[in-house]
Amino acid sequence: MSVRTVAKQDFLSARRSRALWFATTLFALLAVLIAYGSQGYRLSATEQVQNTFRSFGMVLAVLLPIVALVASYMSIAGERESGGIKFLLSFPNTRRDVFLGKLASRLAVVAAGLTFIFLAATAVAVARHGAFPVGVVLGTYLVSLLYGSVFVAVAVALSSAVGARSRAIGAAVGSYFVLIVLYLVPTIRITALVQWVHDTMLGMEPNPHLYDAVTYTSPYIAFRKALNLVLPTEMQQEVFRGSLEAGGELPVYLTDEFSLVVFAVWLTVPLVVGYVRFEGSDLE
């Protein structure tokens, strides 16, 4: 099993990376601060903790992709730049082994970091409010794992498709911008843009569901929708206001459950494209 030996070596060196420990510790401190400081108005103990994890989820939505991208963007590009890839491939490893081994290792790194962060946050929140709403805590954790994995997959795929550090950085920053920032900055409204193109430029009938469906391609939006699956009804966010105002039942592709499909697509398509490119390229 060469995938295992590649992953094992990679994980061992990641474990010794000071930068990763630093980032994880910082993130854990932030989580602890949120867990300690979060104080809702007139909430029961259980609701307090649930509310804490709801806020925590909002922070993760923005920061977790950064951690996952930073942890993974050099995974293969770095080896290609340093010549380490020649070492990996001088031994009985195929390119598939290297690709999957790196992916597995970086998934494990991010999962381990996330687990550490959640343990810290949970311990503080439970100690402070004296309640442990298992469903919300565990649910948020699992959805976050999925969300983090999406960005590890994207970063490893990009990393395998480019040959140099500088391009890997560019690709990672670019993907964060396109997948998160565009949907995060309040004044950039993707729905409005789509609406303008669809209605004004193409002159078609208004279709609010379509505008929202376009924004649903972002894993950031998908994460916020997925959190609704694990939060109690009164704490859920209405992500697609436009479709809501239009009234009627939400189509299947705009439901909270559909976020899992969005995640699945992000988890597979970039990896397949990245792998095919990596498999066919000259590694010098």
Binding site: S13, R16, S17, S82, G83, G84, K86, S90
Partner: peptide, 11 residues
Amino acid sequence: LPEGFGFDDPL
């Protein structure tokens, strides 16, 4: 014994 290898990992 490849040319231009790297021992970059903290191993």
